[in-house]
């Protein structure tokens, strides 16, 4: 028999998604995939916000989720712009080959 779903299920799921996104950001070399992993992290945050919005019975958490989505869209647009500029100058999208400012 399956248990009914509680908020804790959602929190554990969002923690797992956050970890997957973190691993993606930290380990991948391809910058496009790093941007996608950031989207995964922000989605985990949104799941948390919506879960707590339901938990406390008001919509403020969902408002916050809307703002998170706005910031995510802006971040993706700027990040991809940087990516295109970078590819034009350096012919690479690998994060560890862009080390001009590194010692």
């Amino acid at each position: 028999m399956l248990h009914p779903i509680t908020n804790a299920h959602f929190l554990v799921l969002s923690a797992a998604l956050l970890l997957i996104g973190t691993i993606g950001v930290l380990t991948r070399r391809n910058m496009v995939v790093i941007l996608m992993s950031i989207e995964l992290i922000l989605n985990a945050v949104n799941i948390n916000l919506v879960t707590f919005s339901r938990h406390f019975g008001d919509v403020h958490g969902q408002i916050f989720a809307i703002f998170v989505i706005t910031v995510a869209a802006a971040e993706t647009a700027v990040g991809l712009g940087i990516l295109i500029a970078l590819f034009r100058n350096r012919e690479t999208v690998l994060a560890d080959e862009v080390d001009l400012l590194k010692w």
Binding site: I23, L26, T27, R28, R29, N30, F87, L94, D96
Partner: peptide
């Protein structure tokens, strides 16, 4: 962006195990 060559290269960092440990 031309990603064909990138797909053929190594996909993960050299320090991937550090990242995994942190996670």
């Amino acid at each position: 962006v031309n990603l064909d060559e990138t797909a053929r290269l190594r996909q993960f960092n050299k320090a991937w195990w550090v990242a995994l440990a942190c996670a």
